[in-house]
Amino acid sequence: MSFRASHLLGIEHLHPTEITTLLDLADQYAEHNRIGRAHRDVLEGLTQINMFFENSTRTQASFEIAGKRLGADVMNMAMQASSIKKGETLIDTALTLNAMRPDLLVVRHPNSGAVNLLAEKVNCAVLNAGDGRHEHPTQALLDALTIRRAKGRLHRLSIAICGDVAHSRVARSNIMLLGKMENRVRLVGPPTLLPSGVEEFGVEVFHDMREGLRDVDVVMMLRLQKERMDGGFIPSEREYFHRYGLDAEKLSYAKDDAIVMHPGPMNRGVEIDGTIADDINRSVIQEQVEMGVAVRMAAMDLLARNLRAARGAKAAGIGTGVMV
C-alpha cells in the first residue's frame, strides 16, 4: 500500500504517491456518494471524535458526514465550551480522551503545532482539521481533487492563490501540495498579507492582481478575516475589493477556461464578487464542498487501514515500528 502515514498532520510530510493514492480513493468515494452507495462497513466499530478548539461549521459537518457514511461512531466535542475554560492543558485533555480509546481523532486548534503535540500523546490516528496558521491538509486535498476533476490533471498547471496568504493555513497546505505535484504556484496579494520568506518556497509573488492572474488555469481565493480588514494590514474593505477582489474584469486576465475556487465561507464583495462565485461555468466552490466529504472519507479509510494493520501486528506480537 502506498499510503503509510499513521496520522494526517499536514501535507509537508506526504509523498506525492501518497497524495495520488488518497485522491484516487476519494474520487471513487465521490462517485459512490453521488449514487448514494454507502460503505458502512469501512469504519464499523471505530470511534471518531471531532475535537474543535476553534469554531467551525462546515469542516466539522464534513468530517461528521464522512465518518457516518463509513459507519464510524462519531462524536463531536465543542472544546471552546469545555475543559479548556476550566484551565485544563491540551496534553491533559488529550490524555483524558485517549483513555476513552478513540480510533480517529479529528482536531482543529487555534495554535500552530498544537495538533502535532496532541498526536504525540495519543494512541489513535489523528487528522489535522486546521492548526493555527500551519496546515489544513484535508482542505488542500479536496482542492487538489476538485482541480484534478475539473482540469483532468494535477500537474503542470498555473495556479494563483490570492489574498491573505500570511494568516492562511489553507494557503500553506496548498502551496506544498501543488508544489509537490509539480505545478506553478503564484501568490497574489498586498505585501502586508504575504508571509516572510515566501519567495524561498518556489512560488512567484505578485502584488498586482491582474498581472498575477494572467493566463492562469486556476484562481484560488482566500478568505479575508474580518479582524484584519480595518487599518492593520490593509486600509479598508472597499480598497481591498477594488485592488484584490475577484470580479469579472480581473478574472478576464486568466485563461478563458480558468476555474474559480474558494475554501469558504465567502465574504461576498470583499474578496470575491457575488456573480463570479455563483457563475456555474467558472466557480467550482460547491464542488469543493462535495469533494471535502469524499477526501475525508478517503483519509479516514486509509488511516483506519494502517491503524488496524498496526494493531493486528501488535496482537500477533510482530514488531512493526508503526504507531499502535
Binding site: 503545532g113 500551519h134 500553506r172 508571509p195 520568506g197
Partner: peptide, 15 residues
C-alpha cells in the same frame, strides 16, 4: 525569527 522557517511552521515571526 521571521523568514522561511516561521512561515513553514505557521508561527508568528520577529523581524
Amino acid at each position: 525569527t521571521s523568514g522561511k522557517f516561521a512561515t513553514l511552521r505557521g508561527l508568528s515571526g520577529v523581524s
